[in-house]
């Protein structure tokens, strides 16, 4: 049984009080560039998923509390939550630094993009 804490209202409960909603930080490319979107980019947006054995980043919803969406960092092998953070945020830096593989690539590109902006 997973014990979840909502970072918005602070409610704490088991997984049945919350709704697990899959991978976090999925960006819809058509929102930014609707004209030049390729089939492959649209495929990546809809279907290709980070599926790590280890640290993973997810969306959850505080179903029976405030109803707000939020993010969680969780290990898919130990089931341990590493962090809960707001839906508009990136993970805490120390958790982001632990990300491996395709997640690490994603965060690197995301932070470099934002530092340029």
């Amino acid at each position: 049984m997973l014990i979840v804490t909502c970072p918005v209202c602070g409610a704490k409960g088991d997984e049945t009080d919350f709704h697990a909603a899959g991978q976090a930080h999925v960006r819809r490319p058509a929102t930014h560039d609707p004209v030049n979107i390729s089939d492959e980019e649209q495929r990546d947006y809809l279907f290709i998923r980070h599926n790590p054995k280890g640290l993973h980043f997810e969306r959850w919803r505080c179903d029976r509390g405030c109803g707000k969406w939020f993010h969680a960092a969780r290990d898919t092998m130990t089931m341990e939550f590493k962090a809960f953070y707001k839906i508009t945020d990136l993970p805490p830096p120390e958790v982001m630094a632990e990300a491996k593989g395709s997640w690490a690539e994603y965060f690197a590109s995301r932070t470099s993009m934002e530092s340029k902006a």
């Binding site: 049984m1 997973l2 899959g22 092998m77």
Partner: peptide, 13 residues
């Protein structure tokens, strides 16, 4: 179970 898992142990709910 509704979330990713590699542990071969599921949730009680």
């Amino acid at each position: 179970d509704p979330y990713n898992n590699y542990s071969q142990r599921g949730s009680f709910p």
